[in-house]
Write a protein that binds this DNA or RNA. Sequence first.
DNA 1: CAGCAGGGTTCTG
DNA 2: CAGAACCCTGCT
Length: 302
Amino acid sequence: MWVRKMKYSVEEKGTKVIVRGIEDFNLKETFECGQCFRWNEEEDGSYTGVAYDRVINVKLEGDMLIIDNTDLNDFYDIWFDYFDLGRDYKQIKESLSRDPILKEAIQYGKGIRILRQDTWETLISFIISQNNRIPQIKKVIENLARSFGDPIEYKGKIYYTFPKAEDFVMFDVETIAKSKCGFRAKYIMDAASKVFSGEINLLKLYEYKTGEIRDILMNINGVGPKVADCVILYSIGRYDTFPTDVWIKRIVEYLYLKREGNPLEIQLFAIDKFGELSGFAQQYLFYYSREMRKKIFNERKK
DNA sequence: CAGCAGGGTTCTG
DNA sequence: CAGAACCCTGCT
């Protein structure tokens, strides 16, 4: 119901696809709201990243989105959905702004979009994220890509695709651990073997109800409710999901509860409050909590 | 079932 | 320069 035909003009120019009519999109906010780990800012403010076995560079100039190293086919097959260009974020923000607290949070990340990411990559990325910091998560993912992915050249630099399940299963846990992923190596291996064997078919997850997907994913060693919810939101696109990590827990406690709570309680509170837009609320709150981290941290010490 | 260990890195006191 | 903390989960 939130999807409506957007009015874009799209043209291919050399190695670029140029999309005009873009609204409610900010690259920094979208790439740094905690949902993805493989995008890096260039000196000119554009971002280069690897997704779906491709390297692209994206730049926003006014209402113009410029995607380099792609073509019209890939734009319509991949990037349109990846950047969620068919969704009216203005309407989502309006609806969520009925809550005055969230209205304030949205001001900090007005251009956030929820990316539609590859399921396998999302699963492994968030397994790595557990008890870890964002720079370290990015580092481990790059290490894995360099060791087990395929090289792609772009503008004289070598990038690496995110390795597939089949790229991991032929190695042992010790080899995977060389990526500095630590105790998570055995979890990556378990995910790889369950996907490679067909025990879990990630491409069919969308056919199941959210709760069923959660159960399927949580059969993987190292996947608990938080990691499963991240996959469900960032890849399957179930927007009534509210992944509850430490940052979200802190910001909800700080802004709403005014006391300590447990993750489940916070998640139920949020889903009751934000309903089918919980996932979007989560992203605005996560970004806001990162912007406010010093303030919140000082409050917590008292 | 509450509490705690767990890679490696960065930040803090 | 030790100790804590880190987008959590599994084990005891």
